[in-house]
Design a protein around this nucleic acid. Sequence first.
DNA 1: AGAGTTCCGTGCGCTGGCGTACACAAGAGT
DNA 2: ACTCTTGTGTACGCCAGCGCACGGAACTCT
Lengths: 242, 242
Amino acid sequence: MPIIKPDPVTNRLLAALPRKDRQRFLAGCTLVELKFAEILTEPGERIRYVYFPTESFISLVASIDNNANLEVGLVGDEGMLGISLILGVDVSPLRAVVQGAGQALRMNTAPFRREFEQNPVLQRLLKRYLYVLISQLAQTAACTHFHVVEARLASWLLMTQDRAHSDAFHVTHEFLAYMLGVRRVGVTKAATALQNRKLIRYSRGNIRILDRAGLKTVSCGCYAADKATYTRTMGKKVSGIG
Amino acid sequence: MPIIKPDPVTNRLLAALPRKDRQRFLAGCTLVELKFAEILTEPGERIRYVYFPTESFISLVASIDNNANLEVGLVGDEGMLGISLILGVDVSPLRAVVQGAGQALRMNTAPFRREFEQNPVLQRLLKRYLYVLISQLAQTAACTHFHVVEARLASWLLMTQDRAHSDAFHVTHEFLAYMLGVRRVGVTKAATALQNRKLIRYSRGNIRILDRAGLKTVSCGCYAADKATYTRTMGKKVSGIG
DNA sequence: AGAGTTCCGTGCGCTGGCGTACACAAGAGT
DNA sequence: ACTCTTGTGTACGCCAGCGCACGGAACTCT
């Protein structure tokens, strides 16, 4: 079924660049299609590309003890993957897994670093984005420690919906368990509870958000907090100088 | 009792600067005494000073839901407080609490930013330090979620010992509970277990590490992982150009 | 249509940490 | 010496999440 595609350049970071800068930047990018569950970086590995998701979105996963995993960040069209390059470190600290398939803009690290060094507007933008990511990391640490699965699941669904730009997306309980660092059964229980309250509906990996407002009330405050941090930090004069 | 004080400039970040740069930098600093439990920054507040601990050390605490707290970072003579300034954001994302009393070098934000902008060696150094901090945040998120209190306590003691430069330091169970995000009773149980194994000894807030190697074996891998991240990232040619 | 695979629901015993409460001991202040 | 505060030990019921296991439903492939 043919859907009207949005403008390919709808990554919000890039959209905030002045027209001229943006055009030059985009000239150095390749439009790529990211596949579900594709792994873009492994911790400790050298970063070869940076990604600016447009339709797609990517999970940042910390893994310890060789089989315990936890999502600690989510990158959609509001962000970028490979941000540590702006600190001059081309080694990924985390695993990056494609969570929602779709298009992204990709650039090689070398031209990205060049572009970053020459462009003060881009610098301001990405430095602020990194600040947001750090704040959210800290928030996530506390959230995963204190909040119950059902609330965390609700938050996760809201965050994902924002990045999927749709009230329906694909993710199995198994995958969710991996993200939230809990058992698959734990997700099933929480998801069933949400479904019974008519907040979501799902079947074999296809999740649909039915009641966004309702989800917010059962979610922990971390969804709202993360969002607030983003708008507070990036919001005002995001394309200004400084 | 008079103790031979080490050279006041034993912050490792500053020590890594070339002599001339370091002298100029220190000229802009004030040597201050930090008191136990003193709060240096609150989340959302404007940062007025940056601190380079020499003897002292500082906990970075995330707090949510108005009374749930969790230490997500520890800053001693290997780091600095106020690192977000290098991203051009002068708002603290976290609460900073003095964990170990002692001296620190303090500088106003304005001269710090000036110094940072003019000094490429300092830039490289602090950017890498921020990378380490981010990696540790992610590690902490996973650690607090998956690991049991006893293992986390052991890790915490090791990390603290490194920064206290002593096998004895002061911290009550109550305070530890606040840091680890658990009940005071939970700390007592874990600490008792460690004491029974002759790994530590404590009484009314005075803790002494008896068996460092033993502590490592009961600790989760996160202590070793954090340390490895630091040396891997900062270790080689830490005062080089890049 | 039949077989295989993926995804979801449920049950059971276990454990780590929670909230709460109380007792006691070691210093601190007078 | 005597109280007061602070720090630590212990106990009890509770619950969220764990590991494991099995059944069933839905979709896929041939």
